[in-house]
Amino acid sequence: MTEPMLPVGYRVIDRTVETHDSATIQLEPIDRSLDRFRPGQFAMMYAYGVGEVPISISGIGDDGTLTHTIRSVGAVSRALHDARPGTVIGVRGPFGTTWAPEGAAGNDLVVVAGGVGLAPLRPVVLSALAARSAYSRVVVIAGARTPDEFLFRAELDAWTARDDLDVELTVDQPAAGWDGTVGFVTEPLARLRLDPERTVAFLCGPEPMMRFSARVLLRAQMPSDRIHVSLERSMKCGIALCGHCQLGPLLVCRDGPVVTYTVAEPLLTVPEL
């Protein structure tokens, strides 16, 4: 990464509407590529003339393409969410720490995602499937508010159909025709038979969801350093200079977003932070 503050031009080549407020865009480099992203890392994405926001990587192409899934919640994210093929976006990165799923090789892998938290975890699942024999059991628990609000719905259905992947989709509020699980993600998580010393868990979603899920895993005797969470704060510079993303002793853009629950636990219950 030679010029970390200088956005590199990427062109949107594909856009998929995920939900009523979320879309996935695929980008290709125009002149040069950024360094290869790793699962869990994020980019600073610049909608020219609007602003820049941090967005996790949700897909990493071998051809240098980047995939990001964006929920429209403000002016910048709306501009990125709405970007049609052909739109040029400035991208900086890759920034931050990684899930490092390869470090979980030989273990059971438990992925727990809530809402748009599935986006940063998608590369973990894809990498586990690409090296499926490296892991024992692979479990994906994904929660959404309603059945219509799951990201990557076609992919989730394909994952569910696989014999080598245990997928449980659960909703807070069922809709007509939904015959799947109804309940918070902690409920199917608590039903898992875990081997706590041979399991690695990756959690991503709203912070209370991660706290509640981590408590279920701790109660099942999982060591906190086997539980990984992704923190979200107001990342601005991406290179640990501006301090906007400070969380206690951490600068999340550099020391996070992915940290172990050993690190995260004391920080996630301090209201002032």
């Binding site: 809530g114 809402g115 748009v116 508010r145 609000e149 807070d172 509020q173 918070f184 209370p208 969801m209």
Partner: peptide, 18 residues
Amino acid sequence: LDRLQSTRARLLDLYSHD
């Protein structure tokens, strides 16, 4: 208690604000 906690978590409607 587990069911109550799960219900409370759902009442937070976390995914609409994440």
